[in-house]
Amino acid sequence: MAIAAIGKYEFAPADAIEKFHGAQLLYIGWEDHLLFCAPFAFPFPPTMPFGAIVEQVLPGSFGYHPDFARIDWEKAEWFKSGKPWQPDFSKSLADNGLKHKDVIRFRTPGLTGIAGSGS
């Protein structure tokens, strides 16, 4: 349904990829760890290898949680837009098929937050 307006009502999206100085947005959530209140937003170059995120970025963002140190990345399950998905750690984001504003999440089986509460 189109918006009711007087005259033309079309504006460039506020978050078009061009505005991010070469980066694109990627949202990452860690299931069962709501101690982190919401998924994170990151601006990454599309050329960045996926593994670099896991190794260099996530520890800074999720490392506070005692579970983080216990993650077995081999076992981690990944989802993209809610669907199961398998990243290639060695490939770039672009080559992993990640686009601007894609959202991915990971589950770490066996790790379910503080005292198993999902926090």
């Binding site: 918006i3 009711a4 307006a5 007087i6 005259g7 033309k8 009502y9 504006f11």
Partner: peptide, 8 residues
């Protein structure tokens, strides 16, 4: 947002 009644 721009006003729908005056998008200019």
């Amino acid at each position: 947002y721009r006003p729908t009644w005056d998008p200019q």
